[in-house]
Design a protein around this nucleic acid. Structure first.
Lengths: 213, 213
DNA sequence: TAGATTGTTAATCGATTAACAATC
DNA sequence: TAGATTGTTAATCGATTAACAATC
């Protein structure tokens, strides 16, 4: 047995863990009870070795000669990822992207709760979004003084992102989910997860040309 | 000199190329004319070696003792990524996410043009989106028979994604930008770029706990 | 010229895959 | 039991970093 004794887990492994979780959710939903690393690997275009190697960072979840119990493994990975805990989130920037992200219903099922939404635009302040009233950006700092928030979702223009991140950091938010196409500068105990939407289109564009030639 | 003589470029390198492009855009906009791999690396938390190594896949863009001309390098990378060409795109699924993606104005500046939008929901079919009229999903196949499209943007629920992808593939679309949380099965000459939005939240959740302990 | 920085080769590091004893 | 498949160690592969000659 190996278990994770404080060793740093490679980001690659964490990303794959999230993928395993997603696939296992589907398998469980379709009533499949048992799966081997070989079968799972085939489904995901990953080698069985890699799956077993990844899981071995966290413990032993299978049985020799049998494979893995889908529901059990799903449950264990959800614990590892922290999806058994509740996370409070605030949305900063209630544009199309912000609305899309925050209203993705599955997040609530996984323990991610939206507790407030902020925007600078007069015309939407005070309006409803989901079951919240959109607050003016001015009230952000005060809100954070009075409420504990785990994660800030940043869906504002690139030009405003760093300034708001600074405010979140000052008020002790430990997680930032950043959709603005800028690298945020934050202290190292703050976790930033960046979603590279436009980078991903550029990659696609590159690979299309690669195919052609 | 090395240049890319048909060697396959690692995906990592392509992703970083997109990052370099983004940073160079900013540098150029703020009037900076010259940058060394050391300075650029510092800004991006990347080693100078890696930047030079990455660029060397494609050619020689700098001058010894001087560094790189920002505008020139920006231009060259934009050529490499294929951002000098026009790409036609269709949007499939005009929900919040679809609207957000497609109306991200910068894409048009980079040569990505939205030429049609499709949805299944009666209540929005026929309505305007941007400068388009939203078409019913039934008309997708016919549209693709009559028009050339480079990229399909898939912002539909996970349950519908594969079926639509099959249709796109049959009609010879070569690029799919997939926002649905499913692995699409497509022939290998079709390029799929997947944006892992929920996976990324799970990663964030994991790393928040890692910090704690 | 002297100093700086490139492009590229070689060395190192880390991640993936293969192999296999353990065992259900 | 025999067959299958795990968890883990060892071997391989690929990606990152270091070093340095070339040269602006």
């Amino acid at each position: 047995m190996k278990k994770n004794d404080g060793k740093q887990i490679p980001q690659r492994v964490v990303s794959r863990l999230a993928m395993y979780f997603r696939v296992l959710t589907q398998l469980d939903a379709s009533g499949i009870e048992r799966i081997s690393s070989r079968e799972l690997g085939e489904m995901m275009s990953i080698t069985p070795s890699q799956i077993r190697q990844d899981l071995s960072y966290f413990g032993e979840f299978g049985q020799q000669g049998y494979g893995y119990k889908v529901r059990f493994l799903h449950e264990e990975i959800s614990k590892i990822l922290g999806l058994k805990e509740k996370h409070s989130m605030i949305l900063i920037g209630v544009g199309n992207l912000g609305r899309a992200i925050a209203s993705y219903t599955n997040f609530r099922n996984r323990g991610f709760y939206l507790v407030a939404a902020f925007d600078v635009r007069e015309e939407i302040i005070g309006k409803r979004f989901s079951d919240l009233i959109i607050k003016p950006m001015d009230e952000l700092a005060q809100y954070l003084d009075e409420n504990h928030v785990d994660i800030g979702i940043l869906t504002v223009p690139a030009s405003q992102a760093q300034e708001i991140a600074d405010c979140l950091v000052e008020k002790d938010i430990k997680g930032i989910w950043n959709f603005a196409p800028v690298k945020l500068v934050v202290p190292e105990d703050v976790v930033v997860e960046h979603v590279h939407i436009s980078d991903s289109l550029y990659s696609l564009s590159f690979r299309l040309r690669e195919q052609d030639s």
